[in-house]
């Protein structure tokens, strides 16, 4: 992928421009070097990630309960029964719908806010950048307990700050966390607030590779700030945007902490998420079933990620 160099390399060729054809030996050396670079990662990864993954995948096809964990192979293989049971479970279906709602609204919102903040801090202002950067990052590092207490206060029906502000303009604010229709929007607001800081610092890193002279040249040609953002910044930021949207998407599809501390999945299961339901099943000791739920989440995440890769396609 060569989008950042001014004259794009001719398609289908990975050779150095003007350097002539690379020899076989050079290609072999490159492969060897690549694997040397990959080796430490691969070793650690194999032992501490892949092996547990394979084990848990096996578990998802069995009727493992917590009492079987001492003898993990001493269980019945029940094929896809856990999976069919999951799709028949009305609470899990509701959890899937809730999660879809959360992701479809939450991810675009978070990305937009993060990008806006990053662009504003990168070039929009000249002073106090460090202060704003630090400030916008504090939600990420604030303890979830404090976050929960303050947000409950903000969302309170009678004296909460949000409803007080709404009352100034004559709006009678809802019972945010107590009303099944408003509980999810409340959590989306909260999640956006908590997570845009991470996206922002990654965007800030990505913005460093946008050549500023292009902006200057375009400005001389009379392009507006929006046009320059749309036609210069956005295309150059593509790998970074892909990265942030994929990781935010993965995080949000597994969202857990907000309902866990704010609503316990209520009222009336309106905020229970797939991950929270899975976590509960682990707590009940239904390891096989919980593992199969995890892999359902995994497949959904994989599909969504593949779509994101397609949409923000890398031309390699």
């Amino acid at each position: 992928m060569t989008a950042t160099t001014a004259p794009p390399a001719p398609p289908g060729e990975t050779t150095a421009p003007g350097g002539g054809k690379r020899t076989r030996a050079a290609a072999r050396a490159e492969g060897r070097a690549a694997w040397i670079l990959a080796l430490p990662f691969c070793l650690l990864f194999l032992v501490f990630t892949l092996w547990p993954v394979v084990q848990s995948l096996f578990m998802s096809f069995t009727d493992t309960r917590s009492r079987d964990l001492r003898t993990p192979f001493n269980v019945n293989v029940i094929g896809l029964e856990n999976y069919t049971r999951a799709f028949a479970d009305p609470v899990f279906r509701q959890a899937m719908a809730n999660t879809a709602y959360f992701v479809l609204v939450g991810v675009p919102l978070t990305l937009t806010v993060a990008l806006a903040a990053a662009v504003a801090l990168n070039r929009g202002i000249s002073k106090l950048r460090g202060v704003f950067r630090l400030g916008f990052y504090t939600p990420v590092i604030t303890s979830i307990v404090a976050v929960a207490v303050v947000w409950r206060f903000l969302l309170e029906t009678d004296y909460g700050l949000i409803n007080t502000a709404l009352a100034w303009v004559g709006i009678d604010g809802p019972n945010w966390l107590g009303d099944p229709n408003w509980s999810m929007p409340s959590l989306i607001m909260m999640a956006t607030w908590r997570n845009f800081g991470t996206g922002m610092i990654i965007f800030l890193a990505g913005l460093q590779s946008v050549p500023w002279h292009l902006h200057e040249a375009a400005a001389i040609d009379g392009a507006s700030a929006w046009q320059r953002f749309r036609h210069i910044t956005l295309p150059m930021m593509r790998p970074t945007i892909l990265f942030v949207s994929v990781t935010t998407g993965i995080g949000y599809l597994q969202f857990f902490e907000e309902p866990y501390v704010m609503t316990s999945g209520g009222p009336l299961n309106s905020t229970i998420s797939m991950s929270m339901y899975t976590y509960n099943q682990f707590g009940f000791g239904n390891y096989g079933f919980a593992a199969s739920l995890s892999y359902i989440i995994f497949v959904i995440v994989a599909v969504v990620t593949a779509i994101q890769f397609r949409l923000l396609r890398e031309n390699d």
Partner: peptide
């Protein structure tokens, strides 16, 4: 593996 929920492993 990035997409597999941590709780399962």
């Amino acid at each position: 593996t990035l997409m597999i929920p941590g709780v399962v492993t």
